[in-house]
């Protein structure tokens, strides 16, 4: 599905002004048109990825991309690996468990090591907020944030925006409810930034123990009542609830969380009839979301989000390596 608000990437004038950043550390430094530029570029990769046999474009041939994951991840790592390989790059994965990080090497030392290996782009996931920025300041190549602590997860927000735009024809003027453990969620922070920046009404629906302070300063409205927060929403975005939050420190139990904040078919009726349901995965079925909703292709966009993830990451890797590749106008 396309709409009149979507312009092909080729409509933008060539040159650094389309996306003026060396790194992708978060959504916070981006402008609305830069977000649109990435989404437009990603659309082309969606088409390529669906084209059947030869899903290859060799524009990154000869470049080395290192996926440095200091925190466990399956789907994001896989998504970045596929994105790099589809563009012809040599992709290397570094897991914290296999590296010298566990032997006490500091993050900066690890960054300098990766830098000395002449990577052309480094994708980083780390459990500490700000770790990606710290590395980006020390290395010579573009750094992509694949999630740092509770801070940001920009490619997730971009793929979510792309999914919404393709499903609903636009990603502006919508009412979007982000539900669950917002306090500990980098996905929520990046999505709040991106979706408010694009001109949507964003709501946060969470128990008070999992709502960050000063949310009004992020231009969102907060709800503790799920039914109220979902009322007339166009998009219901569920967040994963980590098991360790349910042991009494933040929530009494998983059972109680499901009763008050779980997305059930009955609750979803409060939202608009054609509202879509999103989840960044992996899901806790029966806790934050009922299987009947997760598996309903008319409502759930969960597999589509995974698909858009590859396309968005291809777009980001392409755009951020253009300077290095000497693409005219990108210097």
């Amino acid at each position: 599905m396309t709409s009149s608000t979507i312009r092909p990437a080729s409509d933008y004038p060539p040159g650094g002004d389309a996306f003026r950043h060396r790194h992708l550390t978060g959504i916070a430094p981006l402008t609305p048109w830069e977000i649109s530029y990435v989404l437009d570029a990603a659309e082309e990769w969606v088409d390529l990825n669906r084209s059947g046999a030869a899903k290859h474009d060799d524009r990154l041939a000869g470049l080395t991309i290192i996926n440095a994951f200091f925190e466990n991840s399956t789907r994001t790592l896989l998504s970045f690996e596929i994105a790099g390989k589809r563009l012809g790059a040599d992709v290397v994965n570094m897991h914290a468990g296999q590296s010298s990080v566990k032997k006490g090497e500091t993050l900066i030392d690890t960054a300098m090591t990766l830098n000395a290996m002449r990577a052309d782009a480094i994708v980083i996931r780390h459990a500490a907020s700000g770790a990606v920025q710290l590395i980006a300041d020390k290395v010579d190549c573009p750094v992509l944030n694949a999630g740092d602590g509770r801070h940001e997860h920009p490619t997730q927000a971009l793929l979510d925006a792309l999914t919404i735009r393709r499903r609903l024809g636009k990603v502006e003027g919508l009412t979007i409810a982000i539900c669950g453990d917002v306090l500990h969620s980098r996905v929520a922070r990046s999505n709040i930034l991106a979706l408010t920046l694009l001109g949507n009404e964003v709501r946060v629906v969470a128990p008070p123990t999992l709502t960050p302070p000063a949310m009004e300063r992020m231009h969102v409205t907060t709800f503790t009542d799920m039914d109220e927060g979902l009322k007339d929403a166009d998009v219901v975005m569920m967040l994963r609830l980590q098991n360790e939050r349910m042991d009494g420190a933040y929530l009494p139990s998983a059972r109680e969380y499901h009763a008050l904040y779980g997305l059930t078919p009955k609750r979803l009726e409060k939202a608009k009839p054609d509202a879509i349901v999103m989840h960044p995965g992996p899901m806790n079925r029966g806790v934050e979301i009922d299987s009947s909703i997760a598996d309903d292709p008319a409502r759930s966009t969960i597999t589509e989000q995974v698909e858009m993830g590859v396309a968005v990451r291809m777009a980001c890797l392409d755009i951020l390596t253009r300077r290095k590749r000497g693409v005219p106008g990108w210097n």
Binding site: A28, S129, G130, D148, G149, R150, H151, E152, R186, R189, P212, P213, A214, M215, R217, M218
Partner: peptide
């Protein structure tokens, strides 16, 4: 405050 929330601290 806003700063801590934005930085995810």
């Amino acid at each position: 405050g806003e700063m801590a929330t934005r930085l995810g601290l």
